[in-house]
Design a protein around this nucleic acid. Sequence first.
DNA 1: AGTTAAGGACCGAAATGGAG
DNA 2: CTCCATTTCGGTCCTTAACT
Length: 288
Amino acid sequence: MNKFNIRSTFDILNEHISQLCRELTEADIKKATFYELPDIKKQDEETAPTNITVTKIEGEKALSKCLDAYRDLYLNDRESGKLLQRFPGLLLVNDPKEIIKSRVNAVNLAKENFKNAILEISNNDARFEAVHSAVPNLMTLAAYRKIHSESTAPYSVRFTWMKKHATRVLSKELAMEMLNRSSLYSNPRMIDQEKWQQLVEQEKYRVSSLSENAKLRIRRPTRVTPEVNVRYTAQNRYHVSAALPFILFNPHPDTKLGELGHFTQKDDHPRKREYNFLVDRIYLERFE
DNA sequence: AGTTAAGGACCGAAATGGAG
DNA sequence: CTCCATTTCGGTCCTTAACT
């Protein structure tokens, strides 16, 4: 049965994470930095914070915070199971025998296997039920997220706060279908059903007056997330999520290291695009 | 069922700041 | 003061998870 498979792949994952933490405590750590973020509050599910204060921690204490981050897979007494706590950090590790490196690979492979075992169940509810009965209290996405690392010598490793958009391209017909469903939907947060209907009718009017082949897109802003920028040259670089501490193996003294600063929302950013939504409610806009 | 969140794996370019 | 490499931050497009 799937449930046993989920449990056993999870146990393997857990074992590799414990091993990793044990090996890291004995490793030659050249530098440890951890950027503590405020705890997620229930209120944060409603409104995204516009300011995020970062507390920088270094040395022994930072290392132990980093290890806690890798082990943090459970809801415990958190306020929100929807929003994940992020744990940005940076570990510089001398690892000549590639002990840690191969362990990190094993952890990430175990994460992938765990995810695949879960995804064998195609029905949403059955999947949720199977995961949580196999591993009570689990925050599934926390178990999925990878530990990122780099073992060559980049020019720089820096942190930033990144905003993304969730986009979905759709045809006029599809958009109309969505709006038709919306008008039938009795929105639990909506007090006045009549006003709701009127609103949706207006939205439908705006979309229906477009030409048949008009392309539409939903482009919804998502919350800021801390990211790690790894750079070799102007063209050759990448960024990865800084949701877990990043590990730089056998650090080169010339590699420049950045810091994660506080986040402050600025509405007048020069690169910020002008929005002109057809339907503000679902961030629907014309595309092209 | 609908809505929103997280994140992987990419890409593009404006802003910046140091070299000359 | 200009140039341009570096840095920062904008983005796409996709899937799945969690909550209401």
